[in-house]
């Protein structure tokens, strides 16, 4: 039952993603065929019809700003136009913040008085960045130090680590999806932001209770092996941190889904890594006072340092 549900979810998810990808080329209407970021400080514009090289090469014809800050104009230092006039490269003095969309307004290019177009990274790439970021770069356990009670409690054996990680991921995805709906359509329109904590934690306990009840009836075998972890989910700080992050970053639904998948997957990864080490540490000769929890903390500290290596990782 659960596997079938997850399969459905996956199919639905991929359909949505491919729809997004198919729709995206329709943006660049007018004379601009496509836009992209080049090097750190470059924007590359491709034109549908060739433009006059001399006119398109004048830097003062372009006004560029980030979509979120329309007041701050980014000065264009140089424009390089290909000889056939179908491609222009805009260079800027400083590297661009490529995570946010940039708006370019061009005067008198290709015979038009003024055309405006936006430059942004591909949305799919952005979604993957959100996922990877929650999974590795900002791993909730090793770089945000959340969910530690449950983390140390269930990372003694690989079996329990896997069970906890899977149950946690399912609960967090379901609960955060519901939180998103409630936040966007109830809390925000009615200015009930101060109820965030109560609503989010309430939804999480509701989800836990619901999964518990459904699983007990539908698949008692699975419940026997995973039921114990359900209670622990509610004591994990990550379940409240994810919806709070979602609300403060104003994520849309796909970003929220990616964030929650990343948070759950990151927790599973952290648990699995930790349990693999702890199974071996038990065989090692650890000084008497450090046996058990103290050595586990020190191992976790080393993992945290290793995860610092992911900071600055940028794939798209």
């Amino acid at each position: 039952m659960m596997i079938k549900n997850r399969l459905n979810l996956a199919v639905w998810f991929w359909a949505a993603i491919s729809a997004l990808v198919l729709c995206s080329p329709a943006w660049g209407a007018g004379i601009v065929a496509s836009t992209s970021f080049g090097e750190d400080n470059e924007i590359i514009v491709e034109f549908r019809t060739p433009v006059e090289v001399a006119i398109a090469g004048e830097a003062q014809r372009y006004r560029v700003f980030e979509e979120t800050d329309p007041d701050i104009l980014l000065p264009v230092t140089e424009v390089e136009v290909a000889d056939d006039g179908t491609r222009a490269t805009l260079r800027f003095a400083d590297p661009l913040n490529t995570t946010s969309a940039h708006v370019v307004n061009a005067q008198g290019i290709g015979g038009l008085e003024s055309t405006t177009f936006t430059v942004s990274k591909s949305y799919l790439g952005y979604l993957l960045t959100v996922l990877i970021s929650a999974l590795l770069i900002k791993n909730f356990v090793f770089t945000k130090y959340l969910g530690l009670c449950v983390f140390f409690g269930t990372s003694k054996r690989k079996e329990t680590a896997k069970g906890m990680g899977v149950v946690f991921t399912i609960v967090v995805v379901v609960a955060v999806s519901m939180s998103w709906v409630l936040y966007q359509y109830v809390l925000k329109p009615f200015h009930l932001d101060y109820l965030q904590i109560v609503v989010f934690i309430g939804l999480t306990s509701l989800t836990v209770q619901a999964v518990d009840t459904v699983l007990r009836k539908v698949n008692p075998v699975l419940f026997k092996s995973f039921g114990v972890f359900l209670v622990l989910v509610i004591a994990n700080c990550v379940v409240i941190a994810v919806p709070l992050l979602m609300a403060s970053n104003e994520y849309n639904y796909f970003e929220t889904l990616m964030l929650s998948l990343g948070a759950g997957g990151g927790f599973l990864l952290a648990l699995y890594l930790m349990s693999s080490v702890r199974e071996r540490v038990e065989l090692a000769r650890v000084p008497e006072p450090f046996k058990g929890l103290p050595i586990a903390f020190i191992v976790a500290g080393q993992f945290a340092m290793a995860f610092l290596g992911f900071s600055g990782l940028q794939l798209f």
């Binding site: 090793f142 450090f290 929890l293 103290p294 050595i295 586990a296 903390f297 020190i298 500290g301 340092m305």
Partner: peptide, 15 residues
Amino acid sequence: SAGFFVVGLMMGFFN
């Protein structure tokens, strides 16, 4: 990231 080390070392020390 040193938080883990500090807490682990202090726990060991108290033990």
